[in-house]
Design a protein around this nucleic acid. Structure first.
Length: 613
RNA sequence: GGGCGAGUGGCUUAGCUUGGAUAGAGCACCGGAUUCCUAAUCCGGCGGCCGCGGGUUCGAAUCCCGCCUCGCCCGCCA
């Protein structure tokens, strides 16, 4: 492939097989329209190119609205355009059909060049060189007060996937986790663990009879171990004013920047590490952590408050609390103000959030947050404050719906939660059980490794496959389904392809990829399943481009299923290794390209491609 | 009450940003495929007033208005 001369054309042509076709066709249509007296832009034409239904060609242009502007009828205009256009590079014919202009690609060159592009680009098929502005993407940012539940992990799955897609699209992305160590939740846990369990109040000791050590015992995850004290400690604090004031005093000291941060952070830090190890099982990692308390220590919260105090948009409550009128930003009449400080001048979360965002804007040109739908109003408050301090930049937000249980909302304090670790463990267990019956020839260690990858991929895919703003009702059978629309379905297709390549001695390593046949060598007529497969493979770059724009990461999950399905149809009905000559070569190239696209797509989704399963 | 989000076959869901030609899947159910490259697969069947009503348009699941249902938020908590 390396010695093949690259086609001349814009860089876009090197990334997306559809790019030259769309460009040539829209240029031709635009030119023809101009001759009819149309004055619009090329982009306008290209945006209107669509995919016609099965059997009506490959790209279609609806003539309706243009016909109106040009005072003729759509079928007539389509006819005239078709006549004027003649031949377009890459297309076999352009013809009128009712009010539509339908264009048929020259199938063979398009299919072969798609395969060649995939072979040439390899892991980079579906990506662009990093040339865009830097992006800072904050996600998950779970309070370090206990183990993560599946609902929270939806944030991580969406955020991590979006980050991967943006990187692929050419944006240098940094991911951040905001560690909310101030506030009463964290302080409650810090407080209880500052006391040796043996000296805990009776109510708490009775609620946690097995907890005797101030440190997690060997084998216990710190997020689970420390976190279990949260509910009883919180309840106790609420019932005992002297405990509550201790917690408040603790929180106030760090809020003022006068506490001993090192010892204060011991428990939150340990819990955070537990949370991160759970997320890492699903391939979620972070580039940077910002501790809320650091924003106090480094003075950035103070600077924000000073700017706000000077602002003519500031609102000062009678008792002295400092805030801003949020009504212009959509805050409700009944509670129009968002406050940055309490009456005593101590700062509140919104102040720290503004300080955090000022830092983000310094670090990147584009700032994105992944937030649960319960934060919609908070963001409006944040905007009001940013406006008041004279900040014109704004973060973008990807909102997502809750993960609920069939019985209702997950509540930590109500004790109705499904923890991520438990789902991951159960996924691994079920996968292992399958592997024991299906693949007895593998070693225990291999089966264990594969089972973990199947299990966590299944969970991740389940959280990814629906539109972010739709709520999900968590059901074990669905989350851990291994058939149909599931990660194992995708992994299975990948494993089948990998197996074929091993047997066809084309492992995909350097120099071993099957050569994409030339136009002269390739069979001229293809099976419909072969063409459907390449077509599917050709769509990845266009999709990455779109998802990077609007964060609709679920479309990539849907796409992965489409590719796997096309591959399975192909695999099921056509022989690869038994085929001969050019046909074998073509099919091996198809398998190779399919494996590549599946691997690239799975990687974008943070799922594990498997060589065998 | 206000604001925001969602309503598509029995269940889950894609398509809605940018209106376009028979609304596409998965699960469940029924029936089929394995002397052959991994049946976690494939093929066929069943099943849809796209929440309801109106409007815009040559054309509406898609845009606009109203209504209904569900969810979330509405603290000097975070």
């Amino acid at each position: 492939m390396a010695d093949e001369a690259p086609e001349p054309g814009p860089p876009e042509d090197e990334a997306d097989p559809w790019s030259p076709a769309r460009r040539h066709l829209s240029q031709a249509v635009h030119l023809a329209l101009q001759r009819e007296g149309f004055a619009g832009t090329l982009g306008e034409v290209e945006r209107n190119l669509g995919e016609p239904p099965e059997g009506k060609g490959d790209l279609a242009f609806p003539a309706f609205r243009w016909a109106k502007a040009l005072r003729t009828t759509p079928p007539l205009l389509a006819e005239r355009l078709a006549g004027a256009i003649g031949s377009v590079p890459g297309f076999a014919r352009v013809s009128a059909d009712g009010g539509f202009l339908n264009a048929d690609l020259e199938a063979l060159p398009f299919h072969l060049s798609t395969l060649a592009m995939i072979a040439r680009r390899g892991d980079r098929y579906g990506s662009w060189p990093a040339t865009g502005p830097s992006v800072l993407l904050e996600h998950t940012s779970a309070n370090p007060t206990g183990a993560l539940h599946v609902g929270r992990s939806r944030n991580g799955v969406l955020g991590d996937t979006y980050a991967r897609v943006l990187r692929a699209r050419g944006f240098p992305v940094t991911t951040e986790f905001y560690v909310d160590d101030l506030g009463r939740q964290a302080a409650t846990l810090v407080w209880i663990w500052s006391i040796p369990p043996a000296q805990w109040p009776t109510e708490i000791r009775e609620a946690l009879p097995l907890v005797t050590s101030p440190e997690p015992p060997p084998g216990a995850k710190p997020d689970h171990y420390y976190g279990q004290a949260y509910v009883p400690a919180f309840a106790y604090m609420r019932a005992h004013p002297e405990a509550e004031s201790e917690v408040n005093a603790l929180a106030n000291r760090v809020e003022q920047g006068t506490g001993d941060l090192r010892s204060y952070r011991r428990v939150p830090q340990a819990i955070l590490e537990g949370i991160l190890s759970s997320l890492a099982r699903m391939n979620i990692r972070f580039d940077r952590f910002v501790w809320e308390s650091d924003l106090v220590v480094d003075g950035s919260v103070q600077r924000v408050l000073e700017r706000l105090a000077r602002s003519d948009k500031a609102h000062r409550a009678e008792d002295g609390a400092l805030g801003v009128d949020g009504r212009p930003f959509g805050l409700p009449e009944e509670s129009p103000y968002v406050y940055a400080t309490r009456a005593d001048g101590t700062h509140l979360y919104p102040a720290r959030d503004v300080a955090y965002h000022e830092g983000k804007f310094e670090r990147a040109g584009r700032v994105i947050n992944v937030l649960g739908q319960d934060h919609r109003l908070h963001v409006q408050g944040l905007f009001a404050l940013l406006d008041a301090v004279g900040e014109s930049r704004r973060p973008e937000t990807l909102f997502y719906g809750y993960v609920n249980l069939p019985e209702g909302k997950m509540t930590t304090r109500g004790g109705r939660v499904v923890l991520l670790d438990h789902v991951l463990d159960e996924g691994r267990r079920l996968a292992l059980r399958e592997l024991e019956t299906r693949r007895p020839e593998l070693s225990d260690a291999e089966r264990e490794e594969i089972a973990e990858k199947i299990g966590h991929s299944a969970v991740r895919y389940h959280l990814l496959r629906v539109q972010p703003d739709k709520p999900i009702v968590f059901r074990w059978e669905e989350a851990l389904s291994f058939e149909g629309k599931s990660a194992p379905f995708l992994q299975y297709a990948h494993a089948r392809a990998a197996s074929l390549l091993r047997k066809g001695e084309a492992t995909g390593g350097p120099g071993t990829a099957p050569r994409v046949p030339s136009r002269a060598e390739a069979p001229s007529s293809w099976d419909p399943r072969e063409t459907a497969l390449v077509r599917s493979l050709s769509r990845l770059p266009g999709l990455v481009d779109r998802v990077a724009q609007d964060g609709s990461v679920h479309l990539l999950a849907v796409y992965a299923h489409d590719v796997a399905e096309r591959f399975n149809e192909f695999y099921q009905s056509l022989r690869v290794l038994d085929a001969e000559g050019p046909l074998r070569q073509l099919r091996l190239a198809l398998v190779h390209a399919s494996r590549q696209v599946l691997a690239n797509t799975l990687d974008l989704l943070g799922l594990e491609p498997l060589e065998r399963m």
